[in-house]
Computed example of a mutant assay.
Amino acid sequence: MTTRQGPAVEREERGRTPVLVIDEAHLMSYEQLETVRMLTNQGMDQTPRWPACWSASPP
């Protein structure tokens, strides 16, 4: 028997959408921001797997 886990299960079986919340985003380096962007933009022609909410203070 295979056990499914992750955001797809939350969305399909429970009707929930997991959200990635990033606080203090202004402290992240360009490389870190780019990595998060790439991870959250997989399957751009579909609903995002990981909708993200960014929180940062102005410079």
Results as ranks from 00 to 15, higher is better:
residue 25 A to K: 03
residue 41 N to G: 08
residue 48 P to E: 01
residue 7 P to D: 07
residue 57 S to K: 01
residue 17 T to E: 11
residue 32 Q to M: 15
residue 12 E to G: 07
residue 47 T to W: 05
residue 52 A to Y: 00
residue 40 T to M: 05
residue 45 D to E: 15
residue 52 A to L: 03
residue 7 P to M: 08
residue 27 L to W: 06
residue 18 P to Q: 04
residue 7 P to G: 10
residue 36 V to C: 03
residue 15 G to C: 09
residue 8 A to N: 12
residue 24 E to A: 11
residue 7 P to F: 06
residue 54 W to P: 00
residue 47 T to A: 14
residue 45 D to L: 14
residue 54 W to T: 00
residue 51 P to H: 07
residue 33 L to V: 08
residue 49 R to Y: 08
residue 27 L to T: 09
residue 58 P to S: 08
residue 32 Q to S: 12
residue 55 S to G: 14
residue 58 P to G: 04
residue 54 W to M: 01
residue 10 E to V: 09
residue 7 P to T: 09
residue 19 V to K: 03
residue 26 H to V: 03
residue 30 Y to N: 10
residue 45 D to A: 13
residue 27 L to Q: 11
residue 36 V to M: 02
residue 48 P to Y: 02
residue 10 E to R: 13
residue 56 A to M: 07
residue 47 T to Q: 07
residue 40 T to A: 11
residue 49 R to D: 09
residue 1 M to N: 12
residue 3 T to M: 15
residue 49 R to W: 07
residue 16 R to F: 13
residue 43 G to W: 02
residue 35 T to M: 12
residue 33 L to S: 05
residue 49 R to C: 04
residue 50 W to D: 00
residue 26 H to G: 14
residue 53 C to F: 11
residue 27 L to F: 03
residue 18 P to T: 06
residue 29 S to P: 07
residue 57 S to H: 08
residue 55 S to Q: 04
residue 17 T to Y: 05
residue 30 Y to C: 04
residue 50 W to S: 03
residue 25 A to D: 04
residue 25 A to C: 10
residue 38 M to R: 14
residue 28 M to C: 15
residue 38 M to E: 14
residue 34 E to F: 03
residue 53 C to M: 15
residue 44 M to Q: 15
residue 17 T to F: 04
residue 14 R to C: 08
residue 10 E to D: 13
residue 20 L to I: 04
residue 34 E to S: 12
residue 51 P to K: 05
residue 25 A to Y: 03
residue 53 C to L: 15
residue 24 E to N: 13
residue 44 M to C: 08
residue 35 T to Q: 11
residue 46 Q to H: 12
residue 20 L to A: 06
residue 28 M to T: 08
residue 28 M to D: 01
residue 25 A to P: 08
residue 30 Y to H: 12
residue 11 R to D: 09
residue 23 D to T: 07
residue 13 E to P: 05
residue 7 P to N: 09
residue 57 S to R: 08
